[in-house]
Design a protein around this nucleic acid. Structure first.
Length: 136
DNA sequence: GCCAACGTTGGC
DNA sequence: GCCAACGTTGGC
């Protein structure tokens, strides 16, 4: 089981929209490292859903419903993954709160702030859920 | 293969 | 809206 963190700007595609849609295709990734992370995802993997710019907080959990395949919006070598919503966090976890937790200081989110699709370890994932008062 | 220029992301 | 960080591109 893998754990990930995906970023979206809320005005573009907020978590609430994913809940509404039931599923979405994560396209538009144009960064090699992010693409490789997409390709490493397996169906059933969990992803923390982070709102960048506005909010700057993790607001929900999504799950990979279809593993990586060719990005249909381009003929170049990029990949997409399909996500379905799992649940919204009872309490969002802000970037500031993440920074304050010693356990989370090594998160890819902090270390590589510009990476839009990054890995999360199981302990990190659990710590985020705990602090959000959410159980899957 | 280096590195300057450029574009984009994302926090503030 | 600004700007720092950083990935990518392209000239040499």
């Amino acid at each position: 089981m893998g754990y990930w963190l995906i970023k979206s700007e809320p005005f573009k595609y907020p978590f609430s929209k994913l809940v509404e849609d039931g599923k979405t295709t994560w396209d538009g990734v144009r960064n090699f490292e992010a693409r490789n992370n997409l390709r490493a995802m397996k169906k059933g993997d969990y992803a923390l859903y982070y709102h960048s710019n506005e909010g700057k907080e993790i607001v929900g959990v999504a799950r990979v419903s279809r593993a990586a395949y060719q990005d249909p919006t381009t003929t170049e070598d990029w990949s997409v993954v399909d996500f379905e919503p799992v649940k919204a966090l009872a309490q969002p976890v802000t970037l500031a709160a993440i920074r304050e937790m010693p356990k989370l200081k090594d998160m890819a989110l902090l270390k590589k702030s510009r990476l839009s699709v990054g890995p999360v370890t199981k302990p990190e994932f659990d710590a985020i859920l705990r602090s959000s008062k959410t159980k899957l």
